[in-house]
Design a protein around this nucleic acid. Structure first.
Lengths: 236, 236
DNA sequence: CGTATTTTTATTGTCGACACAACAAATGCA
DNA sequence: TGCATTTGTTGTGTCGACAATAAAAATACG
């Protein structure tokens, strides 16, 4: 082994290499370990994972399909830029999906669903208490995905997950630089949502989802206006 | 040339092969020329397009990412089954996106948008008049995508397009077997929608979208209950 | 004759090598 | 010096071949 972080080789099963590369890169991109714009070199990755370029390429195609990387034909492929120009569109979409998934959950939740959601909410509360923004973002995502799953509509869950993953990068970008004020408020909002879902109170679930989404959107918006980064990161 | 339909070779540009294969297969799958469950043979496609298996494979990965084909590891890859079990989830999602995109269009439409929409509506009307169900389905799709584009939210447009493409297969499955009663009613509904969008009447646009979606969903539902196919096509 | 086991076969997953395209550097010319 | 042209470099796109795997076929065994 050359060094801990760079070498991930070893006897894997036949189809597993692609998945490993895909999962690893995906995580690194979402966690902003690979900054937007970072060039991706196939040969380099091939060496890192002790694979040929073919499976690497396959993983990259999948990432490109998710719009996590951008391939400039015949030239480079880079980590996709975060699209600050369409931010309000994104927020609209996110808010809508917050609402829809929470409503559906209130309609269709089962006892096991509630249990799962509670467990994830506990994790979320722990992350907030520990003032760990990165964990908070991750557990918050899991919490809402669990709610979407409880709703039982795979199309909604799918669309929502996609949006959350895209948003993950935006969230990390801002939360990680402003980690003083971790919003404990979210914890109680989550508790209220669980109660509304468990009670099957669709209207209340909806209202809470709106409030929660507005909360998050407002917070990010205030970060953005307090920051000058979006103006610098404009795509060219 | 061996025969007209199977050979599509010739001097293409470097990166274009993958796109061609992807587009071609995508269309054939959506048009049900390749029935759900049809096995996909890489070598066979390689020969058909006069390419090596590598670019074919890349196209297949992209189709798999869109859930149009299903790859059974190490064994076959087949055209994805249509998911009749989650049909009502699908209809819920479709209805929601009909509403949202039509609303947004009423808010943000420009004069050019309206022009484009009208042009596509004219095509749609022609297809209905010509009693050409396949054209009707295609132009209907384009009509609604244009509305979504006019809304200006790329996330909504993207999600909606994805749903429409998935639905395309369901629509074709039923419309092509019941092509006696081509619903002329849709044409006037479309006209009303355009009027509401142009007038910026969000509430009316929303109501029309709901009615339109219910219309379509109801029609497909009645086809399904009049048919025994869904019970036969259960996945195993 | 039916079942378990081996062999064959078909097809995928992976590899290393090469061809090509775009950019960068170097060179030639005015 | 300023610009056009050539050459070099880097990294992608494509290829043909090989290895692994799982189903089907063939064989052995009760």
């Amino acid at each position: 082994m050359k060094n801990g972080a760079e070498t991930e080789a070893g006897g894997r099963k036949r189809g597993s290499g692609v998945t490993l590369v895909y999962d690893t890169l995906r995580r690194e991109i979402i966690d902003l370990k690979l900054a937007p714009g970072t060039p991706i070199d196939e040969a380099q990755l091939a060496e890192r994972f002790s694979l040929s370029r073919t499976p690497i390429r396959e993983a990259l195609v999948r990432l490109a399909a998710e719009n996590l990387i951008t391939t400039l034909t015949n030239r480079a492929t880079i980590v996709s830029q975060i699209d600050f120009l369409n931010l309000s569109s994104f927020f609209d979409a996110l808010t809508l999906m917050y609402r829809v998934t929470t409503r559906e959950a209130a309609l269709n939740r089962s006892a096991e669903d509630i249990e799962k959601i509670r467990k994830l909410q506990a994790e979320f509360a722990r992350s907030v208490a520990a003032r760990a923004p990165l964990d908070m973002i991750a557990t918050n995502r899991e919490f809402h995905v669990a709610i979407a799953r409880a709703g039982g509509n795979k199309y909604f869950t799918d669309l929502f997950t996609r949006l959350l993953d895209e948003g993950q990068r935006i969230l990390r970008l801002y939360y990680s630089s402003f980690n003083d004020a971790l919003p404990r408020q979210y914890v109680t909002e989550h508790e209220d949502m669980i109660a509304a879902i468990e009670a099957g109170d669709v209207a209340r679930a909806d209202a809470l989802a709106v409030a929660h989404a507005d909360q998050i959107v407002g917070q990010i918006r205030s970060y953005i206006s307090a920051d000058r980064r979006p103006n610098l990161d404009l795509e060219l």
